[in-house]
Amino acid sequence: MSAVIEDIRLQPAMVVDDVVKRFGRGDELVTAVDHVSFNVQQGEFVSVIGPSGCGKSTLFNIIGGLLGDYEGSVMIGDERISAPHPAVGMVFQEESTFPWRNVIENVAFPLELQGVPKSERMDRAHHFIDMVGLASFEKNFPSQLSGGMRQRVSIARTLVSQPKILLMDEPFAALDEQTRLLLGDKITQIQQELNQTTLLITHNLTEAVQLSDRIVVMTYRPGKVKRIVDIKLPRPRTSDVVGSDAFGHYVAEIWNDLREEATRGMADSESAAARRGSHG
């Protein structure tokens, strides 16, 4: 019996197995994601990092079930993801709060869809608003909040459904570096408090190292897994870790992997711009 429990505990929360996604057809066929495989353990924080154009967002959409037509499999338990799954809660890169709802109404929204009674959903929403540090802003509308606060509302709205896996696509991309570090602290604190399995898609090196247990480094187009790096920084972790030698070592190590890919990506963008210029 204990062996069965141990097996369940060791079973990954999510398995990404040999995923391939192509767009277009004929001569214009583009492989965005090319035989990508990795898994995410229960309670683990994994980041996928790569240069622009490496298929990170495509992978995000596949795992979130927004792109159902792909080869390979993304498995949660015994289920293959081909549509949005209640076990996966998504936080998007762009600001995604509903401007016509105040903070608590935004956060309670998924519970409203599930038909949870009003008093219960308000209690649960209040708990998660408190967790992201916005307790005194419950009645404010998004237009009255800063960009970082709005992203925290989005995170609380995703957490309120208590998803098995929190899937985030560069949620702090539009924020300044200091806010990003502080929100990183908040995310780490929540992840540790809830033992929340988290998959972060990012192109930000320091953010990935600050938050993750493992980092999946992707190549430039077509997006393949170049390397998976274990981040053995101590937990519980705060943004103080960015000043440590070990942190610097990890950033340098991953940048060595990424530099070549980012250079290829930049050269590709420049030649595409030159082609557009010569046609124009």
């Binding site: 979130g64 927004l66 549509a83 949005p84 209640p86 809660g89 762009e94 016509w100 869809l113």
Partner: peptide, 29 residues
């Protein structure tokens, strides 16, 4: 209506009627 708001609705498995009344319509108001 911003695509990301529609994607939020899709990620929450909303029906097309829910998507219209709870996201598209208030956004278009």
């Amino acid at each position: 209506t911003r695509k990301v708001l529609i994607n939020v609705g899709r990620s929450l498995n909303m029906t097309s009627s829910q998507l219209f009344w709870k996201i598209l319509f208030p956004s278009a108001l």
